[in-house]
C-alpha cells in the first residue's frame, strides 16, 4: 500500500484517537469524540499501523506522527488508576502490619540498631552520669534540662496555637529524620546505619541524662504517649532503608537494578506506613503529650497502652486464622 492510501484509509482512526486523547488531557472544546469503549481498539490499531509504517519505511514524518500518537495513547491508557480508598484502608488496617511482619529480618535489624544503643545509653548514664556529656555537648544538655525544669512547667497551660506550632514542627522534623534514615539505605545501608545509631544514642543520652538529674516524672510523662509511635516509626524507616541496602548487597539472582526497583516498592510501603506513624505521633506529641494530667500515672498508662496496642497491631493485625 502506498503511503497516501495508507493515510487516507487510516487517517480517520488517527484523528479519532488524537481527539480522544486531547479530550482526556483536558481539552474541553472538542465535542464529538469516540466512545470510550472504542479506544482500546483504536489504540491497538494505531500501534499496528505504526509497526507497519516502520516496516514499510513510510516517510519519517508519518512514522513520527504515529509514534507520537502511540506514545500519547500509551500514557493515557496505562495511566495510574484512580487512588483506591479501600486499598488504602486495608493497608492501614492490616496490610502494613503484614508487610512489617514479612520483612521481619530488616525490622529486627533496624530495631536492634536503634533500641540497642538507646537502652544501653539510658542505663549507662544512670551508672556513670558523666557519660552523657561525652555523647552530647554540655550546653545542649543544659538547654534540654531547662526545657523540662518543673519551674517552667506550663506545658499544660500552653495555648492551642503553640500546640499547633509544635505539631507542625514535629511533622516537619521527625518525618524528615525518618525519610533520611530511609534514603540513607541506598548508600549500601551506611546512611541508615548511621542515622539509626545516631538517633538511638542521642535519644538514649538525653532521656538518660534527664532522668538521672531527677527530671524523670516530667520527661517520662511527656514522652510516654507518643513514644511508641515515634520510636517504632524510626525503626521501621530504618528497616525500609535496609531493604534498599539488601537489594544492593545481596540482589540474589536479579540484577542490582531490578532488585532495587522490586525491593524499593516494598521499602516504599514501609516508609509510607512509617510516615503515617510519624504524623500520628506528631499529633499526640503536639496536643496530648504537653497536657498536665494528675496523676501522672494516667499518662504512663496511656503510653503503655499505646505500646501494647501497636505491638499487638504489628504482631497480629491481618493474620488469617490458623495461618
Amino acid at each position: 500500500m502506498r503511503q497516501i492510501e495508507f493515510e487516507r484509509r487510516f487517517g480517520e482512526q488517527w484523528a479519532a484517537l488524537d481527539q480522544w486523547i486531547a479530550v482526556h488531557n483536558g481539552n474541553k472544546t472538542i465535542k464529538d469524540r469516540p466512545p470510550v469503549s472504542a479506544v482500546p481498539w483504536l489504540y491497538r490499531n494505531v500501534c499496528h499501523q505504526l509497526a507497519l509504517a516502520r516496516e514499510r519505511r513510510y516517510s519519517p514524518q508519518l512514522t513520527e506522527r504515529l509514534h507520537q500518537l502511540v506514545l500519547a495513547g500509551h500514557h493515557v491508557l496505562y495511566a495510574a488508576p484512580a487512588p483506591n480508598r479501600e486499598g488504602f484502608l486495608a493497608f492501614l488496617l492490616s496490610g502494613f502490619a503484614r508487610e512489617v511482619r514479612a520483612e521481619w529480618r530488616v525490622v529486627w535489624l533496624a530495631s536492634l540498631l536503634f533500641f540497642g544503643p538507646l537502652l544501653a545509653l539510658l542505663m549507662a548514664i544512670q551508672i556513670w552520669p558523666d557519660f552523657a556529656s561525652v555523647v552530647i555537648a554540655p550546653q545542649d544538655l543544659a538547654q534540654m534540662q531547662t526545657m523540662y525544669d518543673p519551674e517552667n512547667e506550663r506545658l499544660g497551660q500552653r495555648p492551642a496555637s503553640t500546640n499547633t506550632e509544635m505539631f507542625a514542627y514535629y511533622v516537619w522534623n521527625n518525618t524528615r529524620i525518618g525519610f533520611q534514615t530511609f534514603a540513607g539505605g541506598i548508600l549500601y545501608g551506611i546512611g541508615t546505619l548511621f542515622f539509626l545509631l545516631f538517633n538511638g544514642v542521642y535519644i538514649g543520652a538525653i532521656l538518660g541524662h534527664l532522668h538521672q538529674v531527677g527530671l524523670g516524672p516530667q520527661i517520662w510523662s511527656f514522652v510516654a504517649a507518643h513514644s511508641a509511635l515515634e520510636l517504632l516509626a524510626i525503626a521501621i524507616s530504618g528497616a525500609a532503608g535496609f531493604k534498599l541496602a539488601t537489594a544492593l548487597i545481596a540482589p540474589g539472582l536479579r540484577s542490582r537494578k531490578l532488585a532495587l526497583v522490586e525491593e524499593g516498592r516494598i521499602a516504599f510501603r514501609l516508609i509510607g506506613g512509617a510516615a503515617l506513624m510519624f504524623f500520628a505521633a506528631a499529633v499526640i506529641e503536639g496536643f496530648f503529650s504537653p497536657l498536665i494530667i494528675d496523676p501522672r500515672e494516667i499518662k504512663y498508662g496511656v503510653g503503655i497502652g499505646m505500646w501494647l496496642v501497636l505491638l499487638g497491631y504489628f504482631c497480629f493485625a491481618g493474620r488469617t486464622r490458623g495461618a
Partner: peptide
C-alpha cells in the same frame, strides 16, 4: 504568629517531599 509558623512548617514539609511527587504523578508527569 504561631499558627503561621505551623502553616509555614507544614507547607515547607509538603513543598520539599510531597508537592514535586504530586506534580510528577499527574498526567503531564
Amino acid at each position: 504568629g504561631e499558627v503561621g509558623t505551623a502553616v509555614f512548617l507544614l507547607s515547607w514539609f509538603a513543598l520539599e517531599w510531597l508537592v514535586p511527587a504530586y506534580f510528577e504523578s499527574r498526567s503531564r508527569g
